[in-house]
């Protein structure tokens, strides 16, 4: 029974999670905290902070976390699968039409507008990521020097076509050096 409820709850989260990123939080809160009571509001905040420091989409991180809480590792698997099931079914169906050899002129016209449109959407998301990362969490106007250095160094190397994986680690390294400087100057 618990497994079934877990499955249905995250099926709902997956089916109605449009927009990606933090847009999904109110939905998770409504279903997981208020309806099923699997997490308290404080634990919900914990899930958000753990999502910030781990890879992966927030909906999947929440699914794994709640699944573990309710029914251990099998629960985590059931909740994760339920989260991605609606999109998997839909995209599978869309894929049948989309990946056919011949495309109609109408679909071609739609994509001629979607390509620059999607570039615009990604640009907007990038501006949000930039603003969220560059300013100190304690103040909306003071720029975090560590973030700025990491950004500048990685930007230069990336323009010169350095690979992404090492650059992410370089960013982490710059962050750790910044942390060390802070740690030493405070004590």
């Amino acid at each position: 029974m618990t497994m079934l409820r877990l499955f249905i709850a995250f099926l709902e989260v997956g089916a109605f999670a449009f927009g990606g990123g933090y847009a999904v939080l109110p939905l998770i809160e409504r279903v997981i905290v208020h309806r099923y009571g699997w997490l308290t509001m404080t634990e919900m905040t914990d899930v958000v902070s753990i999502s910030q420091v781990t890879p992966g989409p927030i909906a999947l991180n929440a699914a794994t976390f709640v699944g573990m809480r309710v029914a251990g590792i099998p629960g985590a698997i059931i909740a994760s699968v339920a989260t991605v099931l609606p999109q998997a079914i839909l995209l599978f169906l869309f894929g049948i039409f989309f990946f056919r050899e011949k495309r109609s002129a109408t679909i071609d016209h739609a994509f001629m507008s979607l390509r620059p449109g999607v570039a615009g959407l990604i640009a907007a998301s990038t501006v949000s990521i930039f603003i969220a990362s560059v300013f100190l969490s304690t103040s909306p106007i003071i720029i975090d020097p560590v973030v700025l250095i990491a950004l500048a160094v990685v930007l230069i190397l990336r323009i010169k076509r350095a690979n992404i994986f090492p650059l992410v680690f370089l960013g982490a390294g710059i962050g750790l050096i910044g942390g060390l400087v802070e740690y030493l100057t405070q004590t």
Binding site: V53, A119, I122, T126, V146, A150, L170, G171, A172, L176
Partner: peptide, 24 residues
């Protein structure tokens, strides 16, 4: 962990900026 993440968020911003430029 938080310190490493601060640097990583800057790196990810930069990586996204270059990707947006290319895709646009």
């Amino acid at each position: 962990v938080r310190a490493a993440l601060r640097g990583m968020s800057g790196a990810i911003s930069a990586i996204m900026i270059v990707a947006v430029y290319d895709l646009a």
